[in-house]
Nucleic acid binder design. Structure first.
Lengths: 402, 402
DNA sequence: CTATTTCGTCATGGCGGTTTACAAATTAGT
DNA sequence: ACTAATTTGTAAACCGCCATGACGAAATAG
């Protein structure tokens, strides 16, 4: 139920792959990559002391990683202290790149991120995808992918994999879109539609947004609840640095948590689900606005202009969110709740009532609620970074290709 | 936020301990133990093919485990097929034992479980612990522990550790009881009160009950929500075979999930928490019964006798549980919900309305709800087995002692 | 200018699993 | 009954990987 997008080493006593020396080597290569990636330029000796291996062992690991093109030597460090200065190592800015893609209701986006985490190429195209059949959408996306890949290759990068964020439920195979209400797609296998020459991962955009927050957020904890609203209201649970996916991959359906169990009927069959109070349509209705194109922007605009109807609607949505989150927080005891995606833009008007409700219903200190800095960029970045993480997690497989 | 009671190998790429050959050896020893433990008597060759190592490697691992007294050779297998018959290996029935203890509101219990999972010694003493101060309770428990340990030692076992299940919240240090409302204990460090010569783990009884279900349940999935009612209503979340503990160790507080957000005030500060509808006191009140000694037994008795008031109260409790569980299931997408502890005994009258509510509010097939076979034995068994699992997870540390 | 500190590397060694070979113990076939 | 085939467990030789210890290189401190 956990497992990252690409878990190279399903560890744990008893289960998992047998422990051979090659596996050990692979894990140590990964450790070096992660350390250098996380803590900037570092000498071999510094890496060694951090991961607990000897300098000699790290030397051979680093040699291998440099030969594979994953690390590069920046040259001697400027020595502030006594002793021979080390030679700074950094993650390579060439070599493998993660390709991230996003299928939104009204846009397509693709980007390439290098191992350093820099976005090296990026394309966004607006497209009304609602109700459009998968084939042309994927064809268009594919051409954007090729475009981005071409740009990346011009800079000396090569694609290590493609991760696609979609606004819907994705099966655990990470290829099939089970249900994407806003696109009106059902049981669509993207694996057959997208170019074969990529290692492909399809994922829910809320999940990718949460991973982006985990990997790129300023001081995001290891352990949080990421709430976003693109399709209905989705929560992504990050537990111990790993995404909690659920048996079928459907975990995080915050939108259908009952808030007022005798409330209005919901499409899911229930009554008084959170979506009935804090979903996009519900808020627009309460605010007295017409559903149009950029609905979230519209709400933010009106709220900022002081429209009391809109502000009231958002206040009510915040209350409902607070109630649903109280349940979630009681159940999961996360370190924090992060509002991301579209909700980030509406946070100024949602947060007060949300926090009130959460605090009022919690004994002791309430779970802190923060707002994502990434906003709507999260899913795309998370997708691209998930490919990068997969490379850092198992540098050996890339070494074979390069 | 996950981590078993004693996680020997915090794995995962990048993080964790450095990978040295000794660690590899330890993990492979653990693999052998787990395999033999789970799949009964097995030859070296069978183990080798299961864990993916060579026969030669397994031979040396098995030798070491036999020398440590963790495995024993049963003699030649009866050969059904061609070829030299293997020599059957089994987990030793002597050697280390897990000592489990339970502090209930009205009883104390201690048992010893050998590596094979057999209960080898067991003591239960009834005692009114409600409101009694920790010191005398612990003193009494300690004497029971010594008694059980003596009995176990008489059978050739030695205590590998002590795990104590308590009806309250336990801090992540696994020693301090933060809050046990029914005992009226607060911030009590059991580490200083219990005998020093044991490796001690203190845990919430609902959590231990869930682990018992995971380890001993008939066909319990890897991934489920275990609901029990000892202190209020606790849920334990098992994700990917691991307990989800929460940042502070407080995960699983199902009792304070809001069910009717405008309902009656709750001690937690909220309104309309599940406990207001399905908690022991609430049910007794609705049923028109006096709070007495064995309250759950009382309810079951009356319900079985056809008392309509009691049945109605349980039906309502089931509805409230169904609403709260709908939220939990939407959030977590577990493979199943298991009713354990005291709830198991009341299941016949809770289940119909609970299942109805859950099904009605779920699109598609509802999450299956089952009843624990272990019932109130769960926490004690789970505690003892958690010690046994720790030995299986890292046989090397025991080898040092033996 | 020397002593000290730290870095990176090399040679050596120990440890752990694999490979290969072989004896032992059983079934299948003649 | 005897041989061939199959499977098990072990031993010897081997390889890979990290640790250890020693060394030259490159900086600072006095």
């Amino acid at each position: 139920m956990t497992a990252p997008v690409h878990d190279a080493h399903p560890a744990g006593p008893g289960r998992g792959l047998p422990d051979t020396q090659q596996g050990m080597r692979r894990r140590n290569l990964a450790r070096v990559m992660h350390t250098v990636s996380a803590e900037g330029p570092l000498s071999r000796a510094a890496v060694a002391s951090r991961i607990g291996l000897t300098r000699a062992a790290v030397s051979t690991l680093v040699d291998e990683l440099i030969r594979s093109g994953l690390l590069e030597e920046l040259g001697p460090e400027r020595p502030g202290r006594v002793g021979r200065p080390g030679s700074a190592l950094a993650v390579s800015g060439q070599g493998p790149a993660g390709i991230g893609a996003e299928i939104g209701v009204d846009h397509l986006a693709v980007c390439a991120v290098d191992l350093r985490g820099q976005v090296r190429s990026r394309v966004v195209r607006y497209a009304a995808n609602r109700g459009r059949s998968p084939e042309p959408v994927i064809a268009e996306l594919t051409s954007l992918v090729h475009q981005v890949v071409a740009e990346a290759e011009a800079e000396g990068l090569w694609p290590a994999g493609l991760a696609v964020a979609v606004p819907g439920l994705v099966a655990r195979d990470a290829r099939t879109v089970v249900r994407a209400p806003n696109l009106e797609w059902h049981d669509t296998d993207l694996g057959t539609l997208l170019p074969e020459d990529f290692r492909l991962t399809v994922g829910n955009e809320a999940n990718f947004g949460a991973l982006a927050e985990l990997w790129l957020g300023d001081s995001t904890p290891h352990d949080f609840l990421h709430v976003s609203a693109e399709i209905g209201i989705g929560a992504a649970l990050v537990v111990d640095g790993q995404l909690l996916r659920g048996t079928r991959g459907f975990a995080g359906e915050l939108g259908h948590v009952p808030v007022h169990p005798d409330g209005p009927r919901c499409a899911c069959g229930g009554r008084g689900c959170l979506e009935q109070y804090a979903g996009e349509e519900a808020v627009l209705r309460t605010a007295g606005l017409e559903p149009g194109e950029d609905r979230v922007g519209l709400l933010a605009q009106h709220a900022a202009d002081g429209d009391e109807d809109v502000r009231g609607a958002l206040r009510e949505a915040g209350e409902a969110l607070g109630i649903a989150l109280t349940g979630a927080v009681n159940l999961l005891d996360p370190e924090a709740v992060v509002l991301g995606g579209a909700l980030a833009g509406l946070a100024p008007w949602l947060l007060p009532s949300l926090r009130d409700e959460l605090a009022r219903r919690t004994a002791g200190p309430a779970c802190p609620v923060s707002v994502s800095r990434l906003g709507s960029e999260g899913p795309l970045l998370g997708a691209a970074h998930s490919v990068v993480r997969a490379v850092l997690d198992d540098p050996a497989v890339v070494g074979e290709r390069a």
